[in-house]
Design a protein around this nucleic acid. Structure first.
Lengths: 217, 217
DNA sequence: CAGATTCTTGACCGATTGGTCAGGTTCGGT
DNA sequence: ACCGAACCTGACCAATCGGTCAAGAATCTG
């Protein structure tokens, strides 16, 4: 009985979940490249290796699919960005922030591009409440940065512009990967490239903010 | 006779040039938002206030229109980026570079977004020769930066990553304007905002590279 | 003024779009 | 074995897509 139920659930979840995962991956790639308006369900279906109506059977509509992916992107980002406190070490906090953002660009470039496309489209699918959350998050971080500056732990730079600097610098590796590869003559950005770029960003940005790092060798 | 000729030429150029300018402006806006695939000629026509077939009369095809805009974007960028020399002052060069890029983001945000969309699409319309030119440009700049580092005028940071940092940081204000406005509670980025952001980027990036700036008051 | 050129623009075309729908197949439970 | 649920998928629909074409109006030129 118990064994029978497990077998049943597993079989049901396997088909639906497997197909949904295929569709989500395919859709992310298409939306990341062409944005919402430029993506077609047929292109997504082709990328997923399923007929179009089968895709619609699972996801309902283009809009629902897109919203699911956007939500997933936000969750990926939130899961990697931890809270900070004024008692934390600025060097460690900023370095962790930069490195985790770079890791996201490396592991989920399509998510980054999908988000970039959403913003370029004028963010029609991002709820105002989500921007409110972002604002709250930026404000709380900015407040900590200001306290560090007050205590002489870093220069009194504008903390909001600093956050934008880190966002832009780190997302660039995912969003503009095509350009970077063409200009640097690479076929892909590997671990070593990401490590060196992350080191560079940590070094320049921290130094640029007057934050001294600890040499650990 | 001379007076009659002037009147004739002016009248002919006025209709065609005026309509082409209208179409280019409208198209830039639509392509900037939706990218090539997501932009429709009907949307461009509506934004230009002309019938679709009138638009096609002037520009021939969607592809030609897009390529024209892409070319125009490249020319705008090239017109503002001057050659540099190892004898130049690093602080002045980098500051000029950052400020001119920020000015471009401020005056031509749609161009920046159109380019961003082109890259997100995988750069299908950018000729390989154009990337070669970019690479040449980046390499020549990197060489100068390295010479500066050799002479102790700046830190030995990776010059290519430095250029990417400046690109990403400056283009961010155009490309992610929607996000910036939402988070900062602004309705637009004004001169003062751009000035402060430019100052911030100059200060942090130059300091981050170990370049000392001259205080001019 | 007449003819040539440019401009305007709706009708039309085949292809594609986001879906809807219906019917058949497969799977799971009784 | 039967029935219901889940899955699969081609046909179909109205709307939109990038263009073509033709006809009339406006403008230019000699």
């Amino acid at each position: 009985m118990n064994k029978d139920e497990t077998s049943n659930v597993s079989s049901e979840a396997t088909i639906r979940e497997r197909n949904q995962a295929r569709i989500l991956e395919a859709a992310e790639s298409v939306f990341a490249r062409h944005g919402y308006r430029g993506a077609s369900i047929q292109a997504i279906a082709a990328a997923a290796g399923l007929p179009k109506s089968n895709v619609l059977y699972y996801v309902g509509s283009k809009r629902k699919l897109y919203l699911t992916l956007l939500e997933r992107t936000m969750q990926r980002w939130n899961a990697m960005l931890s809270d900070i406190d004024a008692d934390d070490d600025p060097a460690q906090v900023l370095e962790a922030f930069i490195r985790s953002k770079m890791a996201l660009s490396q592991t989920h470039p399509q998510s980054s591009r999908l988000f970039a496309n959403e913003i370029l489209h004028g963010a029609p699918f991002l709820k105002e409440s989500l921007f409110d959350e972002m604002q709250t998050w930026v404000d709380s971080r900015a407040q900590v940065f200001r306290q560090w500056a007050d205590r002489g732990l870093m220069d009194p730079v504008d903390p909001v512009w600093l956050i934008f600097l880190i966002w832009s610098a780190t997302q660039h590796y995912a969003d503009f990967e095509t350009q970077i590869l063409a200009i640097t003559g690479r076929e892909a950005l590997g671990d070593e490239d990401y490590r060196r770029a992350s080191d560079f960003l940590c070094e320049v940005i921290l130094k640029g903010c007057g934050i001294r790092t600890r040499e650990t060798t």
